[in-house]
Amino acid sequence: MLNRLVKILIADDHELFRKGIISLLLKEDKIKIIGEANDGKDLIYKYFKLKPDLVITDISMPEISGIEAVRILSKKDPDVKVIFLSMYDGDDYIYHSIKSGGLGLINKNISKQELMIAIEYVSNGKKYFGEKYTEEQINRIVNDYEEHSHNSLTDNIEQLTNKEKEVLTLLAEGLTTSEIADKMYIGQRTVETHRSNIMEKLNLKSYPQLMKYAITVANTLKKQQP
Rank of each mutant, 00 (worst) to 15 (best):
I8G: 08
D13G: 10
L24P: 03
L25F: 07
K27F: 13
E28V: 10
D29G: 08
K32T: 14
I33K: 11
I34Q: 13
G35H: 06
N38D: 02
N38Y: 04
G40C: 07
G40T: 12
K41T: 12
K41H: 12
Y45D: 15
Y45T: 12
K46S: 02
L50G: 00
V55N: 01
T57G: 07
P62S: 09
G66S: 01
V70A: 02
R71T: 11
L73T: 00
S74L: 00
D77M: 04
V82G: 05
M87C: 00
D92V: 07
K99M: 09
L103D: 00
I106C: 11
N109V: 10
I110S: 13
Q113N: 11
E114Y: 06
M116S: 04
I117Y: 06
A118D: 00
A118C: 06
E120M: 10
V122R: 06
Y128H: 06
F129T: 15
G130P: 15
E131Q: 04
K132W: 00
K132G: 02
N139D: 12
R140P: 02
I141Y: 07
N143Y: 09
N143D: 09
E146Q: 15
E147T: 14
H148A: 11
L153Y: 02
T154V: 08
T154L: 02
N156R: 02
L160W: 03
N162A: 13
E166D: 13
L170R: 06
A172Y: 02
E173A: 13
G174F: 08
G174R: 06
L175K: 05
T176D: 00
T177K: 05
S178C: 00
E179F: 05
M184S: 04
Y185H: 07
Y185C: 08
Q188S: 14
R189M: 15
R189E: 15
T190E: 13
T190Q: 13
E192S: 13
E192D: 14
H194F: 10
H194N: 05
R195W: 07
S196W: 01
K201C: 13
K201M: 10
N203Y: 14
S206N: 09
Y207V: 10
L210T: 02
K212R: 13
Y213E: 09
A214K: 00
I215V: 11
A218W: 08
T220M: 00
K222G: 08
Q225D: 03
P226C: 01
